[in-house]
Computed example of a mutant assay.
Amino acid sequence: MLYWLIKLLLAEPVLKSVYRPWVRGLENVPDSGPAILASNHPSYVDPVFLPVVLRRRITFIAKSELFTGSGLKGRLAARFFHGIGQLPVDRSGGRAGAALESGARLLAEGELFGIYPEGTRSPDGRLYRGRTGVARLALETKVPVIPVAMIGTDSVLPVGGKLPRIRRVGVVIGQPLDFSRYEGMEDDRFILRSVTDEVMYEIMKLSGQEYVDVYASTVRGGGRSHGARKDPPPGAPGGRSAPAA
């Protein structure tokens, strides 16, 4: 109930009037039944904008620290994150698999589950190598993976930004990917990598982003940036622009 109250009474009318988000491929999201929506992650505001354009509820996994703030601000933040469909998971102490376990439970209930295969926000607007969790989840649950591209959200809240800017954003949703041909192979690391790379390739085609075959966490952690740019490019990733109003 809280999800729909925030979506319909707060997030949707405000975000639609201010940011005028556009969407392509909405018909690729089924009206019912489970599916994994695998998205690029150029900005922290991505999980705010995607639910706005969908007709169904979608749940993302979020780090538990976002829900444990103190005082009134912390309580309001926790309610907001719950309200936009984010589920707290403690990923410390080797519990990284907790996110996939939660995702599997949601999918078993026929829900939509959102995941960022890159594992973290892009440090420079480019698309980075995907973690194989999305492949393992897809093969274990036998549900389709729908690639998603967030367009222009890194212009709303760029890396290092504190306050969101008013920029038009968009969402491009691709056709569902069926990996039933790999049934029973969820423990084969070569299959997991192949499935993950296929998902990332589809996201790359939708977003127009430059692909970098290293993990984003390596760059964020101070590794080699491979010429990463400091500021996001003008307009959408890959030079794509939003359609006319």
Rank of each mutant, 00 (worst) to 15 (best):
W4K: 02
L5C: 09
V18T: 10
V18I: 15
R20K: 11
G25W: 01
E27Y: 01
P30V: 00
D31M: 06
I36R: 02
L37W: 02
A38W: 07
S43C: 05
P47N: 06
V53W: 05
R57V: 07
S64D: 12
E65T: 11
F81R: 03
I84D: 03
D90T: 05
R91T: 09
S92W: 06
G93P: 00
G97V: 07
L106T: 08
E111V: 10
F113D: 00
I115N: 00
P117C: 14
P123R: 03
G133D: 07
L137Q: 07
I146H: 02
A149C: 14
M150E: 05
S155F: 06
V156C: 07
V156K: 06
P158M: 06
L163I: 15
R167G: 04
P176H: 06
P176C: 06
D178M: 14
F179R: 00
S180T: 11
R181D: 00
G184M: 09
M185H: 08
E186M: 15
E186S: 15
D188I: 03
D188R: 13
L192T: 04
L192E: 04
T196K: 06
D197R: 14
E198F: 12
Y201L: 13
I203K: 01
Y211T: 01
V214P: 13
S217Y: 15
T218R: 14
T218M: 15
T218Y: 13
T218C: 10
R224I: 15
A228C: 11
D231V: 14
P237S: 10
A245F: 15
